[in-house]
Design a protein around this nucleic acid. Sequence first.
DNA 1: CTAATAGTGTCTATTAGACAGTATGTT
DNA 2: AACATACTGTCTAATAGACACTATTAG
Lengths: 275, 275
Amino acid sequence: MDGKTYNSEEEFLKDYDPSKFDRLAVTTDILIFSISEEYEDNYRKLSNKHFSVLLVKRDNYPYKDKWCLPGGFIKVDEDIEDAPIRILKNETGISDIYLEQLYTYGGVDRDPRMRVISTSYMALIDKNRLRDKLKDNASWFNITKEEDKNNIYVTLDNGTDILKYTIKKTLKEKTTDRYKFTIEENTSLAFDHPLVITSGMERLKNKASYTDVVFNMMPKYFTLGELQQVYEIIRGKKLLDPAFRRIIKDKVEKTDKVKTGGGHRPSVLFTYKEK
Amino acid sequence: MDGKTYNSEEEFLKDYDPSKFDRLAVTTDILIFSISEEYEDNYRKLSNKHFSVLLVKRDNYPYKDKWCLPGGFIKVDEDIEDAPIRILKNETGISDIYLEQLYTYGGVDRDPRMRVISTSYMALIDKNRLRDKLKDNASWFNITKEEDKNNIYVTLDNGTDILKYTIKKTLKEKTTDRYKFTIEENTSLAFDHPLVITSGMERLKNKASYTDVVFNMMPKYFTLGELQQVYEIIRGKKLLDPAFRRIIKDKVEKTDKVKTGGGHRPSVLFTYKEK
DNA sequence: CTAATAGTGTCTATTAGACAGTATGTT
DNA sequence: AACATACTGTCTAATAGACACTATTAG
């Protein structure tokens, strides 16, 4: 550092000038994922479930009127993990929500205003917990994803707006099959949020196959059919009933409640059983 | 934001004052892992391998004379992923090294000088690539880890200094078995680096079981015995030969070279085969 | 009765774990 | 010859995939 030598940490700190280092604005973006239901006209059929993400509409520049992930600046006197909790509380009104850090994005041109570093978090919730508590610039978007060898095509739909984007995948590292995602096309999402959403979905998909994360999106009581539907949505493929039940059986607890009224055999309600 | 309304993004940006947001120093810490060998006095035996990490000795306050991970500040005009590449090049002289972002730490009191956010990266290298290129404040430390239900006990040894620390594990989240790590005891490592090292080791251990990361620490040619040793060190358990060879067989390619001179049957040399 | 889901039994294929054996170079 | 590792065959256990079947309700 500078030429002077110090004899103790106290002495050093007293003399220390923090301004000599570059400082950057640090923000956090939160992916709030949930499952939404769409009821069928056929009384016999189960409700159609969708994977969905909460977006907010920007009311000022940059990206005015575009949709983006909820987020905000990290305060100088705030632990980084406290920022997403604060924002989540502010956005949904609830505070005990599954939260996980995902990735820190820091491209030089992420934000036209200034240099910003952004740490993304993923939150999973059961939508039933927050009936009519949403702010009016916020909205749930159903996610539809299609994929081929080189691209991921995503459509976000909240019933009014339809947002589409395309992500290009290029293999970045052979030993771990990691891909570099780049935005190939994007009409209506702000910043690099298409990247954040896509990586978050991938992460969740992976975690769903070796952990119990999925239960964070389930209500207290659920049928195995409903649970299977959610797994299928997140894993992106149909699962066979007997296999699914085999795998899940130690993770759930049977209750004496049943769900009736579906025009078919009633289904037993289960709860999540911790190990 | 402020009261004024703008008609275009250009207009908005011209008027924009970036100083109104908190700014933080952002750094990166790099875990450089490798495998070191310790030759046995018994000519017949294979060399004893250790998992090791590169540390540098701090030559000024704070934490003067303590060991820490190589790292540095992210520059305002530098992409966040470019910082670890720059530091790695500077520290080891090589540039094509396996690199992966791990986690962003941002506790308020991480650094006594000022508020710092730090993104950690993990790098894996084959030590043979950098014979006598190390700087003189840097040193490889062999890592020994022991674990019980509540704690992880780690010893770092470079032949001269022995550093010890203890990490306390507390279950943070039930559905994904995630633990919160806290430093319980730490005599000679700077900052929160015991946390970074421990989490990095965990991450590598997991990745080793479902990817080919391990090959990043191997030389071009290796025997299956050596490869198995490295897997065993990282996974933290003995593996059975036939099972290991079954799993690995599609990932490696036999060469016509053999390794002789070991006082036992010569071993065929293999190379990594990409899918 | 019928459509639609709930739930189970069982057979097969694949993968993982375990052990025992054979092979071969150096001193 | 003996030690230490290299390498393989095979049996068993556990897990995953597939299909077919029975059960039960609202309308």
